[in-house]
Every structure is written in structure tokens, then in C-alpha cells.
Write a protein that binds this DNA or RNA. Structure first.
Length: 490
RNA sequence: GGCCCCAUCGUCUAGUUCGGCCUAGGACACCAGGUUUUCAUCCUGGCGACAGGGGUUCAAAUCCCCUUGGGGUCACCA
């Protein structure tokens, strides 16, 4: 019999979604979808100090933005809930009682000062600074009495002798000597449970079969495996994903660049590119393919194929990939994506833009090849929104035009020739005719195009001139050239 | 420091499971050309790696051992 895989992503709402976390979610999701299993979302908010509801919202939003969906979770419910750890406290209490009764856990009254001294001593001796198990010797009944009387205590897991094996789909068999695993704290003196404890209780309750998570959890795993055994359960399959590293080869952190998914959304990365790039950190579709879709990922993803070694996050490649997606997007869809960025830049209101949807789509189509991120669009098309009499001239464009005074005359002559040909304005036709004109005039192309570009766009670079004219409209083109002739002569 | 993980171009990776098809393939970046009205795109070419040392074998990037290097983790965080 083969059981249906059940996977989960279990973020803790102490910040926005980290791109490393996003990749973890993506791989879990992909494998669940690939196998026809279930993907669930669980919120690990046992750290009451740092957990915030707004972060939970932000994380869910980030996952949706990437196009991920989940079958069970705090917002959609499910048969194995609740899916927020803060709502499962009763469950942890009963599990604690069960473990205490079964002799798998014990109360520890050692004060923090003793623990600290112990750690210091062991570190000095060059040993693993672990708890020495002193409170193991306490009679359970007596310990229970002291606890009932209000004496502060934590609950520790009683790590047995021996070795702990775990199966990791990426790293193979990993073995730990239990002497290296200390009697870790399951429940704080406040009564709040701790991660290594709740994660196992939840994964058991939620019937999780595969745990895909970051490698930083690898050394936690023996503790958890031991707990599964104490609970009389079989541990799931593990796959510890390689870490995503910063330029300094250390775990990716804010010091070495943007790490929040939101940063990339705000910068105008297409979510499809983010998904694609994240997959490339540790996984490859084959030996040649770099670009692939979410659907292809689902078709092919297998945790066994994930590389075991860490990868340095390369912003250059990420940006390139974003550009590939932008360039391939169809104008209508791209326009929709760019719309909010143009509005946010203050070029036009959402209503104005919507009213000129066909026009805006044409704008996007001409710029598509030139931008890598949605956020690059507003600055490039600002000239289209400027009043004809106020087109700002970039200093370098102005300087270039003024270096050749004869070009003002050229522009004036061109305007005279152009004026009767502005309506209707067919870019391809006008481009050809203009070329013919420059030949007649014995002009090199740049001699006309440079000042013309300055007149229309105020910039030294940008879209094809004739497409820009079509977007501006004939009347506007005439006015802009006229104004430029005057300004350039100054 | 103890324990654990990892090791192919500067970077992301294919090849490692079942050793020969690898004079190690692709991509980003970089460099040089070309196309082009600018910018960008695009095209062509170039640079560039199996960390080191021992084994095993007819044959090793691929298997084993050691060394070195890097990372992770050692909380009443997750």
C-alpha cells in the first residue's frame, strides 16, 4: 500500500516571507502536487513575543503571489486542524502528560544560573555544552509535587542511550550518537511548549509523511526522531535542503542583500521568474534548461535530485531571468502587471490608464524588450505623460544636440517636411520615408535622430523613435519638435 | 571547540545512484566581434572547473581513506 504524501510548510510569523522559506514552500508544494498528495500550511507561533498576525497575513499573501495553493491551513481549514500552534496548546499539554507518564520526559528544576555555569564549564573543557541530566534522578511523584506547589520548572526530554539514524532523501543515512543530543527542553517554565516538541506533535497529528526543510534543521532531527519513537510513531522521510548563501558564503541574511520575498515583489520581479530562480537554487530540470514553468516543475520535481551543497544567491542571474520573463510576456498581461507601478510612480491615475488600455498596451509592447523589471517602466515612459511644453531634457541629450548647431536647422527642415505626414501616423511607413528624406538631404542618420529623440523624449536613449511618435500622436510630435527647435537654438 | 553536512568554471548547475559515451555540457557574469537611429535586445566567438594526496580498478569527476577548505548547529528562538 502506498500512502498519499502529505507535506507542509510551517513558517513562523516573526517576519515577512524569506526567500529561503519561499523555496522550501515551493519544493514542498511541488512534490505534493507532483504526487497527488496534500500540501498544508501551519503557522508556528509558539514564540508569543515575536509572532505577529500581520506577518502571518504577509506570508500567506507572499505564497499566493508565487502561485502556490494549499489544501489545509489556517485560512482554509481541514480535518487535521487547528493549523495555528497557538490554538493547539491543549494538545501539547496532553502530549506532555503522556510523555511524562511514559517516562520519556522529566521535570527539571535547575535554575538558569546553574545551566549557565554548566555550559561555561563544559565549553572550557572542550566538550559539547549540554545539560548534564541532574534532574533525571528526581522521583517523578516528588517532582510533580514541587511543580504543583508552584516551583518553576521546565520539562525535558529524556534522551536514551544509543545512536539515532535518520533517512534523508538528499543526504542519505545520517547517524548521531545520542550522547551528542542533550536532554532538551520541551516545555518552558511558563508552560509554553518549544519548537522541537510541537513540530513533532503537529506533524504526527497532521499525518505528515515527508519533511522538506532547510539544512539548519538537520541537527534538530535526531531530537525529533527520538520523540517520534517515544510517541510510538514512525518518523517521516526527511529532506534537508541546502542553504541559500549570501556573497559571504554564510546563510543568506539582510546584511548581504534583500532576503524578503516582498522586496522582490516591490522591485517588480515577475513571480514566475521568482519561482523559476528559486528552483535553480539546488535543483535543475535537466542539463540544459534554465527557463521552465511552475507546471514543468510539478511534472519533474523530485527531492532526491536536489543538490546537497549550498548555493550562493546570484542577483545578476536573478535579474537576467526576470528580464527573460518580461520579454516573453504578452503585452496585455504585461500591461496589467506594470499598471500598478505606473500608477505608484504618479504618471497617471488608475482610471486614466484604464481608459487608455489599448494605448497603454502599445506602450508596454514597445518597452517590453528594454526592461527587466516592472519597476523600470515608469521612468522610461514618463516622457509620454509630460505636457508637450514641459518635456524635461536630460543634460546629456541637450549637450549632444548643442554640440552640433547645424542640427537645429536640420530639425526645422525635417519638421516642415514631416508636418503634412503626421496624420495618419504609421510608424513603419514613416521610418522608411524619413530614411529616404535623410538620403535626399545627404544626412547621416544620427544627425537627425539624435536631436529628434531629444525633442520627443528629452532623453539620449529609449524606444524606437517612430513607435514613440505613434504613441505620442501627430499633434504632440509637431509641438515637441517646434519647442525643441527653439530650445536647442538657445 | 564538540557534533553534523558539504566540496565540478568567479556564480548557478549537468554529469556521481549502475566507474568507460567527459579531450567535463548548459546558463549568468566577464571579454572580443557583428546587427542596430539611441538604449536594450539579438547573433557569433573567447575566457573559465573536477580542492590536494593516497588507494581500488584495464579504466575514477564518478568508489574508499586521509588532509585541507567552507558551512550549519550546539537556547526556557524557530
Amino acid at each position: 500500500m502506498t500512502e498519499t504524501p502529505r507535506l507542509r510548510f510551517a513558517p513562523s510569523p516573526t517576519g515577512h516571507l524569506h526567500i529561503g522559506g519561499a523555496r522550501t514552500a515551493l519544493f514542498n508544494w511541488a512534490y505534493a502536487r507532483r504526487t497527488g498528495g496534500k500540501f498544508l500550511l501551519r503557522i508556528e507561533d509558539t514564540d508569543r513575543e515575536r509572532s505577529k498576525p500581520e506577518y502571518e497575513r504577509s506570508i500567506l499573501e507572499g505564497l499566493r503571489w508565487l502561485g502556490l495553493d494549499w489544501d489545509e491551513g489556517p485560512d482554509v481549514g481541514g480535518d487535521h486542524g487547528p493549523y495555528r500552534q497557538s490554538e493547539r496548546l491543549e494538545r501539547y499539554r496532553s502530549a506532555t502528560a503522556e510523555l511524562l507518564a511514559g517516562g520519556h520526559a522529566y521535570r527539571c528544576f535547575c535554575p538558569p544560573e546553574r545551566l549557565e555555569a554548566l555550559r561555561e564549564e563544559r565549553t572550557r573543557a572542550g566538550e559539547n555544552p549540554a545539560y548534564d541530566g541532574r534532574c533525571r534522578a528526581l522521583e517523578p511523584a516528588e517532582a510533580a509535587g514541587r511543580a504543583a506547589a508552584g516551583e518553576p520548572c521546565v520539562v525535558r526530554f529524556k534522551v536514551p542511550e544509543g545512536r539515532t539514524h535518520l533517512t534523508d532523501w538528499i543526504r542519505g543515512e545520517v547517524v548521531f550518537d545520542n550522547r551528542e543530543v542533550e536532554d532538551w527542553v520541551m516545555v518552558r517554565s511558563s508552560g509554553d511548549p518549544i519548537y522541537n516538541f510541537v513540530v513533532v506533535v503537529d506533524d504526527v497529528d497532521m499525518a505528515i509523511t515527508h519533511v522538506l526543510r532547510g539544512e539548519e534543521h538537520l541537527t534538530n532531527t535526531p531530537k525529533q526522531v527520538l520523540l517520534y519513537r517515544a510517541l510510538g510513531r514512525t518518523p517521516p522521510v526527511f529532506a534537508h535542503l541546502p542553504l541559500m548563501l549570501g556573497k559571504d558564503k554564510k546563510k543568506l541574511s539582510k546584511r548581504t542583500g534583500d532576503t524578503s520575498l516582498q522586496d522582490y515583489r516591490d522591485k517588480g520581479y515577475p513571480p514566475e521568474a521568482v519561482v523559476n530562480f528559486l528552483c535553480l537554487q539546488g535543483w535543475a530540470l535537466d542539463d540544459k534548461t534554465t527557463l521552465f514553468s511552475r507546471a514543468e516543475l510539478v511534472e519533474r520535481f523530485d527531492p532526491h535530485d536536489v543538490s546537497p551543497s549550498g548555493s550562493i544567491f546570484d542577483p545578476d542571474k536573478f535579474l537576467w531571468l526576470a528580464g527573460e520573463y518580461v520579454r516573453r510576456d504578452d503585452p496585455a498581461h504585461l500591461a496589467e502587471r506594470c499598471h500598478p507601478f505606473v500608477v505608484a510612480a504618479g504618471l497617471a491615475s488608475a482610471e486614466t490608464l484604464a481608459a487608455r488600455a489599448d494605448w497603454f498596451r502599445a506602450v508596454v509592447a514597445t518597452e517590453r524588450e528594454r526592461i527587466k523589471l516592472y519597476s523600470e517602466l515608469p521612468a522610461r515612459i514618463a516622457y509620454l505623460f509630460a505636457p508637450d511644453a514641459e518635456v524635461p531634457y536630460a543634460p546629456e541629450a541637450l549637450a549632444a544636440a548643442r554640440k552640433h548647431p547645424e542640427r537645429v536647422a536640420t530639425l526645422t527642415r525635417y519638421l516642415a517636411w514631416l508636418a503634412p505626414r503626421l496624420e495618419p501616423l504609421d510608424p513603419a511607413r514613416l521610418r522608411e520615408d524619413t530614411r529616404g528624406w535623410t538620403q535626399e538631404q545627404g544626412l547621416a542618420l544620427p544627425a537627425l535622430f539624435q536631436p529628434l529623440r531629444c525633442a520627443l523624449m528629452g532623453a539620449a536613449g529609449g524606444a524606437d523613435l517612430f513607435e514613440a511618435m505613434a504613441l505620442l500622436g501627430g499633434a504632440s510630435v509637431g509641438r515637441r519638435i517646434e519647442r525643441a527647435c527653439a530650445r536647442l537654438a538657445e
